[in-house]
């Protein structure tokens, strides 16, 4: 499948001369790419300011890479059954000297367009492995791989070198691959999967269900884990939401294919309770930890690795566990049941 981003400029409104039209349509094209690609945008006056900002960011990014100013932050991944921290997801962090924190969602596309992604793509797994070497052997680390990085035939070598340099066992490194890389179902994609599995790393399918995924890919690609996108998790406990059914379907599918699942973006106790009930094997989100620096990530895994759900943002009151025999009356039917936990606002039975 081929996608396209389209910039549109109209004559004479957006330029009477050809060079002006081409310049403006180029700006509109950049705006379409910034909007997540596979979109179209018309030229508008304010795109000039956005273009200037992009050029400035590109230059700053070059300097940041040269000065080794990019960092990896780590968000713990918790095993749902026992709430032990079993790994981290490494997230790129750029603290711009004037603009402050800049999201990878903003600077990675710039890096891709500016040809800087190869340098970042080599640096990230190397740094992640260096940090991972200092953590307990039971801990894994996941690194994101963009579609452009996945298309780089040197990726298996880059990953193997990072592992060899740090002495980390390949099974401790997980590469998170978005389903967009699977759209090009070519022999090259299959060969890349095989090459990565020969290196020995784990593979996770990121943002599952948010794009144009095909279930057929799950059969062909040797994934060890499916990551359930936060858009399915957040709001799943709201009345009338169908997200719970979607999460349950994904976990059933993953279980049948012998894959783990990680629910991303879990922020409230309600959501945590639900994704655990729906069978998600791993949980990641603010309910346990926000992303933290490499130094700060040392402490949570230095002890017994048990995470504690912290729910300052939840609208739901803290629940008290208990076992209490009750009778539930529903549609005139009386059912013997056990009240398992209760709060001022609700209960689980």
């Amino acid at each position: 499948m081929i996608g396209a981003s389209v910039g549109i400029a109209l004559a004479p409104e957006h330029g009477a001369a050809s060079d002006e039209l081409i310049r403006n349509v180029d700006l509109a094209l950049y705006a379409a790419k910034d909007a997540g690609r596979r979109a179209y945008r018309f030229y508008a006056e304010d795109l000039h300011a956005a273009a200037e900002e992009r050029v400035e960011l590109e230059q700053d990014l070059r300097e940041a890479i040269a000065r080794d100013e990019l960092e990896l932050y780590y968000q713990p991944v918790v095993y749902a059954a026992n709430e032990k921290i079993v790994g981290f997801e490494a997230l790129m962090h750029w603290n711009h000297p004037r603009r402050g924190w800049i999201s990878p969602a903003k600077f990675v596309p710039i890096a891709e367009d500016a040809g800087l992604i190869d340098r970042i793509g080599q640096w990230a797994p190397r740094k992640a492995c260096e940090d991972l070497a200092r953590r307990p052997r039971a801990i894994r680390c996941a690194v994101n791989v963009s579609a452009l990085q996945f298309a780089n035939p040197d990726l298996p070598t880059i990953v193997a070198n990072a592992l060899a340099h740090s002495g980390v066992a390949p099974s401790r490194l997980e590469l998170e691959i978005t389903e967009s890389v699977l759209l090009n179902d070519s022999a090259g994609t299959e060969a890349m999967f095989k090459a990565l599995k020969r290196v020995g790393v784990r593979l996770a399918l990121d943002d599952f269900g948010t794009g144009d995924s095909s279930l057929g890919f799950l059969n062909k690609a040797p994934f060890d884990k499916i990551k359930i996108d936060r858009s399915f998790v957040q709001g799943a406990t709201e009345e009338g939401s169908r997200n719970g059914a979607i999460i349950a379907s994904i976990t059933s599918l993953a279980e049948a294919l012998n894959m783990d699942t990680t629910a991303e973006g879990v922020e409230t106790l309600d959501e945590l309770e639900l994704v655990r009930l729906l069978g998600c094997s791993h949980v990641q989100g603010y309910i346990y930890f926000k992303p933290m620096s490499a130094a700060d990530a040392t402490a949570p895994v230095a002890g017994d690795l048990v995470a504690e759900a912290n729910d300052p943002q939840s609208a739901r009151a803290a629940r008290q566990n208990l076992l209490c025999r009750v009778v539930v009356v529903h549609n005139g039917n009386r059912l013997n049941a056990t009240l398992r936990n209760i709060s001022e606002s609700g209960a689980m039975i």
Binding site: T237, A248, D270, L277, E344, S345, G346, A347, M348, I349
Partner: peptide, 9 residues
């Protein structure tokens, strides 16, 4: 879900 139910009072 299966034999469990969450309720809001």
């Amino acid at each position: 879900r299966e034999n469990r139910v969450g309720i809001a009072f």
